[in-house]
Design a protein around this nucleic acid. Sequence first.
DNA 1: CTGAAAGCGCTAACAA
DNA 2: TTGTTAGCGCTTTCAG
Lengths: 342, 342
Amino acid sequence: MNSDFRMPTQADVARLAGVSTATVSRVLNNRGVITPDVRKRVLDSINTLNYIPHAGARALAMQRTGTLGAIIPSLNNAIFAEGIHAFEHTAQQLGYTLILSVSQQDPEREQALVTKMIERGVDGLLLVGNHHDDTVFDRLERAGVRHVCTWAYDEQSRAPNVGFDNATAMHAVVDHLVVHGHRKIAMLAGITEFNDRAADRIKGAQHRLNSHGLSLPDRQVFQVPYSIRESRQALWSAIDSDISALICGNDVIAFGALLEAQKTGLRVPDDLSITGFDDLSLSAEMSPALTTVQVGAASMGDTAARRLVAAVEGKLAVVSAKLDTTLVVRETTGPCTVFNRH
Amino acid sequence: MNSDFRMPTQADVARLAGVSTATVSRVLNNRGVITPDVRKRVLDSINTLNYIPHAGARALAMQRTGTLGAIIPSLNNAIFAEGIHAFEHTAQQLGYTLILSVSQQDPEREQALVTKMIERGVDGLLLVGNHHDDTVFDRLERAGVRHVCTWAYDEQSRAPNVGFDNATAMHAVVDHLVVHGHRKIAMLAGITEFNDRAADRIKGAQHRLNSHGLSLPDRQVFQVPYSIRESRQALWSAIDSDISALICGNDVIAFGALLEAQKTGLRVPDDLSITGFDDLSLSAEMSPALTTVQVGAASMGDTAARRLVAAVEGKLAVVSAKLDTTLVVRETTGPCTVFNRH
DNA sequence: CTGAAAGCGCTAACAA
DNA sequence: TTGTTAGCGCTTTCAG
């Protein structure tokens, strides 16, 4: 690392090209009209000096940074990774850079990260879920940072949403199961603390079952971390009661349940129907292929980025987008064969 | 969005507290000694004004941003997501913010992204693999941005490495297979264009096989994208020759091969042994559980962040770290039962 | 221990 | 069409 070497600045470029810094700035930002000859001289100087503008200085002078922030619960969850991948891709395409932080579902950490994002001057911010500390929204609104909550959709939410209704998404699952004759159903849900999506999925399943004259009592809802290992164990609690179908909070949980079921000789779907949520790419490939809910994480990330940028550049409010989910029926669900065990 | 509202600045805080901005800056950065009373007044003012410092301005005045950059090929690959998750976690812990960009294995895009990173003034940058455009390193060195290449380890590399030797990592796989009597082996490798890790894994397997007096001719090496679907198809090309073992470039490819093998009634490992690379969390859980190479993506991300920060704060060069890989023998490999098919 | 003032690199009026 | 001149918000000598 050559120690005391100064990166060339706009002033250096200006000097070399024999123009003012204002002119350099102009050609850099395509502002105003510039004599072809001058523009060429500037461009040449930039090249020979290997000049790279200083984003911090620019951010100070203009009122924007050209960055989009995202605070997500985790990256070790393929579905978030997929959503962020798309978000970054679109952001990049629109000329924005991504600043990414992981909250680990910790509200305090999230709050601190939001402040960090404001410090960094992100032009827009993506959040996951609608459940956030009030101060999060207060700060964001106060700072005038456009933001959007994803992975959820609720008309009542304080912030704009780009996502789907987790509760409603469960309706199709329940209907599918009920139509196939399932009456006793359990659920391996995600952990609901600080996770409104997981909670909504439970509520959605329960309500829909109720409307069919059935029920999913709380004691048949088991909260498990999004981990295959832990999900395998949870299967045992779930099948203690003689259920014929198992609704899982997401695909990873479903993988665990399926693997464990297979290992113990339980036939899926003959002895037990299993459903997932997310439709990871693996879900279609495994065998039996997983019946699950497709959420379109990629298009969610893409849409979130577009709406955010549109709002920033148009100086408007972010407009919400309600995304659809679709039940993908595959091989882990089938007709209920009652009295199958016990 | 309240339109023309100005975020409170340090000057506002100073005014309210009845001190100079210099003093505010001092308490903010714990520099020098400050009278307790003054400190309290400043802190109070900060609170009542909800003052949030401006990172851009600070970056301009100091010579650092408190950000770490990372440019990775993709996020839709669980192993990269895991590595970045750890990188971000450690960075956050050390007080740094992550700026993340995805290159999609495109050298031109990568080059542009590196420039973007320099613009943003990242204090350190994580790259994947050792194969990068010369201008990438030129620019980075010129700008004095510490950087580290991960997911690879090569004494000869131009940049510091935090990673493992992909070629050597294959030795254990080959040895394991050979010891079990396998002689005819094929490989489903990753696509080697712009991917030195994939290429090294092939070379590693070939060399080691050679040293056993065996060989892995190029025509038995099939390059496939890191996708289950595509890998399934590739299996057919591979087993055309009557091999008894299949080395896969990573776990995802192995999943595909395994799934397809099972589907067609090929018994694993009796009819065909299969190995992976990465040791994704799923690999241990599936059945048969996958024999694979554990790479410790998390500790790689963690170490990369620490080394980068140490170099930045100590004004030193980044020091490389050679990480170990370990073969995890599970159930997809077994003794060779020759003449098993055809 | 604290304040005044210069300046980090860039953009945006305002003149010319 | 281009140059001059203020800042943008913060840190940092240098005085006091």
